[in-house]
Amino acid sequence: MNETPDLGRVWLGVAAQVWHRPPGRVERALAALLRSDGLARALLSTPSLLLPWLLASIAVLGAGTVASLATGTALVPLLAPVVAAAGIAYAYGPGVDPAYELTRTLPIGDRMVLLVRVPAVFGTDALLGLAASAASAHAAAVTFGWLVPMAAVSAFALAVATLTRSANTGVAAGLTAWCLAVLSARAVTGHAAAAVARPVLLVPYAVLAVVCAAVVLIGTSTPAAPGSGPAKRGWQ
């Protein structure tokens, strides 16, 4: 009579083999800072921080900079929230994270992985946006004004992705919300840049960011159980 293999134990063995890669200097520094080898490796495997994604983000913002110089319209502040929303929605989940199944074997929950990855993605995209804005004199007046709406759109995209367990749905929701905000601002003021330049909008953006952050924290409140492998609760 054939014995049924313990798939959970087999998976843990495979995961141990893959995660056995010796850590580099950057990973050791992150492990010391985060006080967790697993979190350090999870951070370095963030999809939105891998080279192809970073190059794509730079290409989008670079195109916005060139268009801004050519047309005299500040496009980078309008593109930066979109880039960040997509990057953060794709920060974690099956089908988008090459290390997702491996992170399911770590004795940490979704919340901890997101709390480490999201600030890193947001900070990276913010620096890219600042660099692109600085390259365009037309964007100087709104160089920092788009940071708050960027946080709001990113938090909204992540909240939708967390509730629906779908990064694609989160990105679609973030892009739709931002397009509506830009079109509404243009309809009211005649300028699309008003979506990031009007001080009166900062409070609603900030409130939206806080509410969506709370939704994400609640949605990822269930801790990960050590050793439960791929069957643990996660995005589907």
Rank of each mutant, 00 (worst) to 15 (best):
L34Y: 10
E101G: 12
A151P: 02
H138F: 13
S36V: 13
G123N: 03
G72M: 08
I88M: 04
V113C: 01
G109C: 10
A152C: 07
T46Q: 01
L55Y: 12
V153I: 15
I88T: 14
I108N: 03
A31V: 10
S154Q: 04
L39G: 09
F122G: 08
G93M: 08
G62F: 06
T103S: 11
I108G: 00
R21Q: 14
A70Q: 08
V116T: 14
A152D: 04
T103M: 08
A155N: 04
Y90C: 13
R104C: 09
Y92E: 07
V76H: 03
A155S: 12
R35M: 06
L51S: 10
V153A: 10
A126T: 15
D37A: 15
R41E: 08
L51F: 09
R104K: 15
P52A: 11
S154G: 11
L69M: 07
P47C: 11
A84K: 05
A40P: 05
L61R: 07
A29W: 13
D37T: 15
A134W: 08
L30S: 09
G24L: 10
T46K: 00
V116P: 00
T143L: 14
V121W: 01
L44D: 05
V113R: 07
G95A: 09
S45D: 06
V66A: 14
R28Y: 07
L30K: 10
R111I: 06
A141T: 14
I58M: 13
A80H: 05
L55A: 15
S48Q: 08
R41P: 02
L130H: 08
W53G: 00
A86S: 14
A32D: 09
T105A: 12
I88E: 01
A126K: 06
A151T: 10
I88R: 00
V60F: 07
I88D: 00
A152N: 04
L61K: 11
S136K: 06
A132V: 12
G64A: 07
L39N: 08
L33V: 14
L79D: 03
A131V: 15
A63V: 15
S36T: 14
P81K: 11
S57E: 11
V121E: 01
G145F: 02
L79V: 13
G145W: 04
I108Y: 12
P98Q: 11
R117F: 02
L115F: 06
